[in-house]
């Protein structure tokens, strides 16, 4: 469906859902929808970013195709979500970031035979990249927030609610039964693989940070022993970051295509590929750090990490930013007691 038609379709569906409301117990999307009566672009973008594409509301919908109302909330919200990424993302959104890994690897490898990558270069390149990523998130978030015309009052408890939703991905648990992903049968698999990926990533990040601290402030220089904090964190994280994305990939391949926005596949696969590559090259680096291959491995790993940085700002990683912002908004709305008033039976 061309982008222009996606918003009217979203509005049509939300109008149907809002007079049905059978799905209100599934996730945060429906209660948020019920607090609204009109569905303009800002509302739809917000709702779309709340949606986790779990599929529950498709399988449960008495109006799903082939019914003439043809209600397919997960797919349409996915399309709107993709469009919102393009709208919010700064400086741009790309699905092709995985390409950058080999592209970066060439100059980086070119360096190594001579001197290895100078530490100063490394620190300033990644420092600048991190700054750009943060700036990009800031701009994107500001765009998301500015688009919303009203702002619910700030309640501290809501921040905890949202944090819990983000850290536990509670919207994928569907009250303990698990979500309908990849098929109609309930399963917790996607949530667990997401956890492996997310926490694997967090551990890798922690590992790199501790290593940097050891190196720069404590005067303890690499390589670190196998049982040191950076290596243990990195190993655990790396394993999670291999198992998680592999699991997500396997589920994705088996996903019911009726619920998928195919135009996002490239972005999704690109992100998964880069996460996997960064974990694999990271672990390889740790295993072979005492061998002559070390400097080449480091160069490749850094190239992969650079490409991954691009997806942080301009790729699939942004889903976490806008999803978190939407969850926070939803928690704030809920806490401010702006409740739905109607209900209908039979």
């Amino acid at each position: 469906m061309p982008p222009a038609d996606v918003l009217p379709e979203g509005e049509r569906l939300m109008t149907i859902c809002n007079s049905c409301r059978y799905c209100e117990g599934f996730c945060a999307v429906f209660p948020a929808m019920e607090r609204r009566v009109v569905f303009k672009e800002a509302d739809l973008n917000y709702l779309a970013n709340l949606c986790h594409n779990c599929g529950e509301c498709f399988h449960a919908c008495q109006y799903a195709p082939p019914h003439e109302f043809a209600v397919n909330v997960p797919k349409v919200l996915a399309e709107i979500r993709a469009q919102s990424y393009r709208k919010y993302s700064w400086p741009f959104l790309t699905g092709g970031a995985w390409w950058l890994a080999p592209a970066f690897a060439v100059p980086s490898l070119a360096f190594t035979p001579y001197a290895g990558i100078p530490k100063g270069v490394m620190v300033s390149v990644f420092g600048a990249a991190a700054f750009l990523v943060l700036l990009s998130w800031g701009i994107g978030l500001r765009r998301f927030l500015k688009e919303q015309t009203t702002n619910p009052p700030l309640r501290p408890r809501a921040f905890f609610d949202a944090l819990k939703d983000v850290l536990t991905v509670s919207n994928l648990s569907s009250h303990g039964a698990g979500c309908t992903y990849p098929s109609e049968r309930h399963s917790q698999a996607r949530r667990w693989f997401h956890h492996l990926t997310f926490y694997g990533f967090a551990l890798c990040f922690a590992s790199t940070s501790t290593a940097a601290m050891y190196d720069n402030f404590l005067g303890r220089h690499p390589p670190y022993p196998y049982l040191s904090v950076p290596v243990v964190l990195g190993t655990l994280g790396g394993v999670g970051l291999i198992a998680g994305p592999l699991g997500l990939l396997a589920l994705k391949m088996r996903r019911d295509r009726r619920l998928v926005d195919p135009r996002q596949d490239r972005m999704d696969f690109s992100f998964i590929a880069l996460l996997l590559l960064s974990a694999i090259t990271g672990l390889a680096l740790m295993i072979f750090r005492a061998t002559p291959a070390m400097s080449r491995l480091l160069a490749i790993h850094l190239a992969v990490i650079s490409a991954l940085f691009v997806t942080f700002a301009c790729g699939k990683f942004v889903h976490g930013i806008y999803r978190s912002a939407a969850l926070l908004r939803s928690a704030l709305e809920q806490r401010s007691g702006n409740e739905r008033e109607h209900g209908r039976e039979g």
Partner: peptide, 11 residues
């Protein structure tokens, strides 16, 4: 109330 309504119940 059935979570997700009657179709979810039947599923």
């Amino acid at each position: 109330f059935f979570l997700g309504g009657g179709k979810a119940l039947l599923n």
